[in-house]
């Protein structure tokens, strides 16, 4: 049985706990064991990352060092965290001066970064560690006639040379999984564009415009729902549909990838936290479970 240490990041446990629960339920079903990382800290994405490269390396570096103590590779479920951890790992593997500096800060806790563990985003676990065939074999209640738009998340897929998840211009993992679960993946304009989430700090109305641009493009393809693989993207693409300009009936449900896969694998809605979703995905799930 493969084991990973789960780094949830700051946001998922508070703002999107259903995602965390669904990740655990689905990976458990697929034979992946997860251990919660205890005593972690923020990875430093965006904010510390922007003002001090060394402090950022120390923050993500500590999380990497903690995973070495657990003796397992890291599973990150947020795009910002997986991007940061992979980026800092790359820096610490290249820049030995920086590594020494980070290790000096970690020493009195008995932690050390040596580079022996890897960081994986959830999409990689599905693609590389479980594999499409095993998922296909585990589908017990396939969807049918449901059109879904995949949103991958910028920091999940770029920069490719560092994150190595999927083709950054033409990503396919979520689309393949939608297909395997019996849904119809739909293509849409601007699929690899940003959700606008990182703009929330500086300019909220601009962030909403960018998010709604994506929602409009998805609506143009008459999708029944959106499938995400990042905490921030999921929250942003949901939240922008509650402002002006989107009628209640027009809202497109947003599901995290494990919440979408779970029902097809026979996992109950309660375990997947479906009732926590702000836009009810009942239409999508109607065929596969009682909601």
């Amino acid at each position: 049985m493969k084991e990973f240490v789960l780094y949830t990041g700051c946001t998922a446990p508070v703002r999107l706990p259903a995602y965390e629960a669904a990740v655990k339920a689905v990976l458990d079903k697929m034979g992946i064991k997860l251990i919660d990382m205890k005593g972690a800290n923020c990875c430093g994405a965006q904010y510390v990352e922007s003002v001090n490269r060394h402090a950022f390396a120390a923050m993500s570096g500590r999380i990497l060092a903690l995973s070495e103590k657990y003796g397992h590779d890291i599973l990150a479920i947020c795009g910002a965290c997986s991007g940061s951890l992979k980026w800092v790992k790359h820096e610490l593997d290249e820049d030995w001066k920086l590594r020494d500096e980070v290790n000096a800060l970690l020493a009195d806790e008995g932690l050390e970064y040596t580079g022996k563990t890897q960081v994986k985003h959830l999409l990689q676990i599905f693609h590389e560690d479980i594999g499409y065939d095993a998922i296909k074999a585990a589908i017990v209640k396939p969807y049918s006639g449901i059109r879904l738009a995949a949103h991958y998340g910028c920091h999940v897929t770029r920069p490719y040379d560092i994150v190595r998840v999927d083709d950054p211009e033409n990503p396919t993992i979520i689309d393949r999984l939608i297909e395997i679960a019996g849904g119809t993946p739909v293509d849409y304009t601007g699929k690899t564009r940003c959700c606008g989430g990182p703009m929330l700090a500086m300019d909220q109305s601009l962030a909403v415009k960018i998010g709604l641009d994506k929602i409009r493009n998805i609506r143009n393809e008459k999708a029944d729902g959106i499938v995400t693989a990042c905490v921030f993207c999921d929250i942003q693409l949901t939240q922008v549909q509650f402002g002006e300009g989107v009628g209640e009936k027009e809202r497109i449900p947003v599901l995290t990838l494990p919440q979408f896969l779970g029902p097809a694998l026979g996992i109950s809605p309660a375990k997947l936290g479906i009732s926590f979703n702000k836009i009810s995905p009942s239409k999508i799930l109607a065929g596969v479970m009682e909601v």
Binding site: A18, D36, K38, A40, M59, L105
Partner: peptide
Amino acid sequence: LGLDPDLNWNEEFMKKV
């Protein structure tokens, strides 16, 4: 949701940073 309510974050390290 069956998740641990104790999030167990470390506050000390950031003081060093």
